[in-house]
Simulated scan of single mutants.
Amino acid sequence: MVREKLVLPDNGKKLLLHSCCAPCSGEVMEGIMASEIEFSVFFYNPNIHPKKEYELRKEENIRFAEKHGISFIDADYDVDNWFERAKGMELEPERGIRCTMCFDMRFERTALYAHENGFDTMSSALGISRWKNMEQINDSGLRAASHYEGLTYWAYNWRKKGGSSRMLEISKDENFYMQEYCGCAYSLRDTNKWRMENGRGKIKLGENYYGS
């Protein structure tokens, strides 16, 4: 895969990359490293439910970051706060207002950390997933960064130029844990409902890996 030389917007020097999981961030991290951009990974995902799934995703992300000597920032799992914010949105569909709330919550914390710790740019690996609405994600990122002078949200399209394909290659090579739902309790509920209606068993946490 031939990579383009990535350059941070607005003459940025230091990037804080929000990561939701290793499969989504692997290709993104590889591209950033190849461009010799200084960055750290920020893991703040209180939406992920249950705790077992949260720990699986986090540990895989830590493993990949440590392999490449990348700083990994493990933020709080304030899950009660997330459920409080999600009240009244329990039946909203994927990509609806509950997801916007979730992106806003995670990016607000990312922007705050960036502001307080000398990062001039923030971005997220969330947008590489074809299951996500990239415009919805970028809107949340731009809103979060706008609260702090001198902080830019990098709305780069990580899917382009073979990014999505490379994401799968890395996931297989690294034998990453394979998530089978977006992450939250309501996503797990709805995915299991669909699976049962289509003759498939419920999701079994911690069993499927890309290399298997």
Rank of each mutant, 00 (worst) to 15 (best):
K87A: 14
G12I: 04
V28M: 07
E84W: 01
E59N: 14
G141W: 11
R109H: 14
N81Q: 10
G201R: 09
R195L: 15
L8N: 07
S164F: 14
N175V: 06
H18K: 03
F83Y: 12
A114I: 00
Y177E: 10
R95V: 13
P93I: 03
C182H: 05
T152H: 12
M178F: 10
F42E: 05
D104G: 13
K13Q: 13
L205M: 09
A111Q: 01
M134N: 15
R200C: 12
Y148R: 07
S124T: 15
F119E: 08
K67C: 08
N47A: 08
N133Q: 13
Y186A: 12
N117F: 05
R3I: 14
D78H: 08
L16E: 07
N11P: 03
K13S: 10
A145N: 07
A145M: 02
A144N: 01
I48F: 04
A34E: 14
K87Y: 00
G96S: 12
N208L: 02
F119N: 03
H115I: 02
E135S: 13
K172W: 06
E207M: 09
F72Q: 06
G31C: 09
L15S: 05
L151Q: 01
R130L: 15
I73Q: 03
A111V: 06
R159W: 06
L188G: 05
E60W: 05
A114F: 08
K58S: 01
E108Y: 06
E53Q: 04
F119P: 02
E90K: 06
R159H: 03
